[in-house]
């Protein structure tokens, strides 16, 4: 049984060159970078981007990011890129964002039309009683570029909500790396409330800001733009990447101890095909499974407030000692240290 692929992989050419890639190209050109050197190795020409004809695959976009970082050689490239990303000029999806009624709707749009708005990074939104949380998943094997992508996505969401809400929102920022030397870039671009050495890259905000009305809201125009975006997704034939689908599948099936074989079956391919595809994305099955388990464990500990035994039972660990060991491997922290350093608020 083979299904028509309903996802994209890192060699599908579908990202319009004059959308997100153009934001980065324009930034680099405004800093005096030569367009030929900027596009070297991407197989692209500036004229094609300008003509609106070029379609990039994820690999080409990642190469472009790598070139820009190297040529600009500045600590602020990812933040400047992020500030210009959203709502952006990506056709109907950008219109829908511009006319969003509030943050809740804007997040919904960013998630639903992620293949159009954020093709390299899939945003995920979580809610508990107090807060809304946003984190991102690598969709196409970004490798070394993942930090660039995540930090620019954070900057983009902060900058967009600040612009559309008419004032900055008190986002809290967690960064999953040690405090970098250029910490001032984080202060200026992500606000004073940045914490480093976090178990996962995360934004959080008190829930009451979700439904605070935004001044530029235009419900009818927004609805129409969403319809158009939906149509675009249908024409593309997918709304998310392979890794994105895999993550969701794993997350939903963690209680059933997912294995390469049965997951491949669910995706309508042989285990060796899935293995090969994951390899092409710079990852492997166990890594993806560990990622899903890490996120689920964090969710159960932090948001559900569950005990070691409950989490171990959910994730099908024999005992909590094994879980603690694995958790430490995934996050660098023991569950007890996690509760101390990152208390649920």
């Amino acid at each position: 049984m083979t299904l028509k692929a309903t996802w994209y992989e890192n060699d599908n050419r579908f990202i319009p060159g004059h959308w997100q890639p153009a934001v980065l190209v324009d930034l680099a050109l405004s800093r005096g970078i030569d367009s030929h050197r900027l596009l070297r190795g991407t197989g692209l020409f500036h004229e094609d981007l300008q003509a609106g004809k070029a379609r990039l695959c994820a690999q080409q976009f990642l190469q472009l990011i790598d070139n820009s970082e190297r040529l600009l050689a500045a600590a602020d490239t990812r933040f400047l890129f992020g500030q210009r990303l959203l709502p952006g000029y990506y056709g109907a999806a950008s219109h829908a964002l511009q006319h969003a009624a509030d943050l809740s709707q804007a997040l919904d749009i960013v998630c639903r039309y992620r293949a159009l708005i954020s093709p390299l990074l899939s945003p995920r939104v979580l809610l508990d009683e107090q807060n809304v949380y946003v984190y991102w998943l690598d969709t196409c094997g970004a490798g070394a570029q993942q930090r660039f992508l995540v930090e620019s996505a954070m900057t983009a969401l902060l900058a967009m909500s600040r612009w559309l809400a008419g004032a900055p929102l008190p986002w809290k920022v967690s960064i999953a790396q040690t405090r970098p030397r250029q910490v001032e870039q984080y202060w200026v671009n992500l606000g004073e409330d940045v914490r480093f050495d976090a178990p996962v890259d995360l934004l959080s905000l008190p829930r009451e800001y979700l439904h605070q009305p935004w001044p530029a809201a235009a419900p009818t125009a927004g609805q129409a733009a969403q319809q158009q975006s939906m149509q675009q997704l249908q024409e593309l034939g997918f709304d998310a990447s392979l890794l994105d689908h895999l993550y969701r599948h794993l997350l939903a099936n963690l209680r059933h101890q997912p294995q390469l074989e049965n997951v491949a079956l669910a995706f309508g391919m042989s285990p060796s095909t899935l293995k090969r595809k994951l390899h092409r994305h710079g990852t492997h099955f166990q890594e993806q499974l560990d990622l899903a388990r890490k996120h689920m464990a964090l969710y159960l500990y932090q948001i559900k407030g569950q005990s070691n035994e409950e989490v171990a039972a959910y994730l099908q660990f024999h005992d909590s000692t094994n879980l603690r060991r694995s958790f430490k491997r995934w996050t660098g922290l023991a569950p007890s240290a996690l509760r101390q350093l990152w208390p649920c608020d």
Partner: peptide, 8 residues
Amino acid sequence: PALYARSA
């Protein structure tokens, strides 16, 4: 200045 948008 306290710039944060007021919560609803």
